[in-house]
Amino acid sequence: EQTLQGQNADKFLCAGDAALYLFNSGAQQLFEVKAFHEEYHSWFIGQAVQHDGRLLFATPVDPLFLVLLYLLKAEKEQGKFQALDQVVVDSEFSACKILLQCARVVQSIHHVTEEKEIGSKVYYKYSHDKTLMWLKKKVNQTVKVLKSNDVCVGGRVQSATFISSKQSTTVTEEDYIRYAHGLISEYIPEELSAELSKYLHLGLVRASNFITLPLQKRKLSEAPLEADEDYSKFNSSDMKNKKTNRKMSAAQKALAKVDKSGMKNISSFFTSKAKATK
């Protein structure tokens, strides 16, 4: 039994250990499922008690992030123009083809590829420059949302004044960009994340901040990187995924790197993203 919040969608897609996705009928839209999970919580649901205190969120995800992983793999392995159905292949995970049914993939693929039309067929090849431009636009629109929702992007995210004090005056545009970059980096390989950081002219993290802010320092030392992500628990027991093949293809490994759980604790999104730009 699970509590889940979601928009219209009717298909889960569990990619082994890598991630949990949800397609609506006809696969026009792809959703990702993330767990909100704090320790020591359980539910009362109607006249029943539920030991598992997680709340799952199913939110729309840009399928281009996933296609991008396959494009990167194809670029590395073949490095030539190919039809999309040759790019999005996964011997370990044939259901990846569902991605090609997402209308948005066809509409937006030009943001990350060079295209060649031969006869009536279109062939695609990963474009690094275009991808960086596309990711920068993603960062920009994320910054807008962060600002309009008063999300605390400074170091003291978990201060007791999350709502009332809003942002302290020291929050800079760069803090927003850095935070947005951290969020985007959950969906792209590390290497690309590093290059995007350069492209955005994000300098190294101002190290002094971490030493001088006691709160930050404490958080960094007490909370190892993935302390609050409980993918092990989720994937092994709850989704009863034990039978799925643990061997992952390259793209799945890339996916796994992007978001090991697919169901990462949402609260991790509200912790400092500085780690992502180290």
């Binding site: 943001h111 636009k137 999300v151």
Partner: peptide, 25 residues
Amino acid sequence: PSGDDGILMAMSWPKISEGLHAPVP
């Protein structure tokens, strides 16, 4: 529970995720 409680912060995840996943213009 107040604004800095995880559950309330989590409720803003759908909005933030819109920024990440909406198509770029």
